[in-house]
Amino acid sequence: MQDILNAIVLFANFVLVPAMAYGSQLALGALGVTLIYGILRFSNFAHGEIMSFGTMFALIAMWAFQAEGIGIEPAPTILLGLPFGIAATVLMLLLVDRLVFRYYRLKKSPPVVLLIVSTGIMFCLNGVIRIVIGPDDRQVSDGARFIVKVGEFKKATGLDEGLAIKTSQLISVAMAILCVALLFWFLNRTRAGKSMRAYSDNEDLALLSGVNPDRVVAIAWVLAGALAAIAGSLYGLDKSYKPFTYLQLLLPIFAAAIVGGIGSPLGAITGGYVIAFSEVMLTYPYKKFIAYLGPADWAPQGLAQLLATDYKFAVSFMILVMVLILRPTGIFAGRTL
């Protein structure tokens, strides 16, 4: 019995909790991608850099707060900076839309052109970020690092294995729940939200009904920008802020959106957790876990790790390829919000 409990705690500590937190961050990122796809009908490759951009401004605001000695112990100060990150991202996106995307929209360019344009925006943002904050790795978290500590958990339960829950992990999951609830409330209950779903469902009929396309597009950018800044800040808080890693986040985020069915918010959330759990579970060494469950001499000699952690990006790729071959529409057959 003790062994089984130990195995469960071990699994929770190294797989369940980290994957939940990472999944929440991916889900928030994928929601932004899916919103833009649902309304503007193109895959926004700049989304990773948009997340980075938002995090950068949240970080700058955080430093300002820290310099003034303002904090919200035990919660991390980045939460105070987050509204500034969101505001900066939203303003930047509305400006970029006005200067760049709008031109191609009015020309009725095909989605692939907009995709290439978004790649251009990605490089531009990347440059801006390097100029403003540089490429260095920066620590985001402050305040209390752990909600549940390994030592205390061991003492309280008397188990050999300990469970640790980081503040950043709890905040990631809580923020994801909050954002998703707000987003669904907005899309399903408000007039503006319903007009967005209508526009995404049937653009011509929405126009006939008097829906203003410029407004719908603006709202889509505002929501995507806010979600991106939040997702980026949470990821930075959980790991660290290094601009380069946000470029790499683009792959799991798109995989998440596509697995769930791009265009479907519910799909983006599901996809985020599917990708996160696959990534963590395939790269976790199960040696100790198996040892707890079987007789003592069962313990495998190797690590019982399916993939080295260096290959974690391959997991997103594999899932992406599998989905595109077996069920190209994704789990929720997305298209509309």
Binding site: K194, R197, N202
Partner: peptide, 25 residues
């Protein structure tokens, strides 16, 4: 008011929401 021949409803929205969208203006 115009009812097109094809794609004349919002398929993913409920009947009531379709009517609400009709009254959007």
């Amino acid at each position: 008011a115009f009812v097109p021949q094809n794609r004349n409803v919002f398929t993913s929205m409920t009947v009531e929401e379709n009517l609400e969208m009709g009254a959007f203006i």
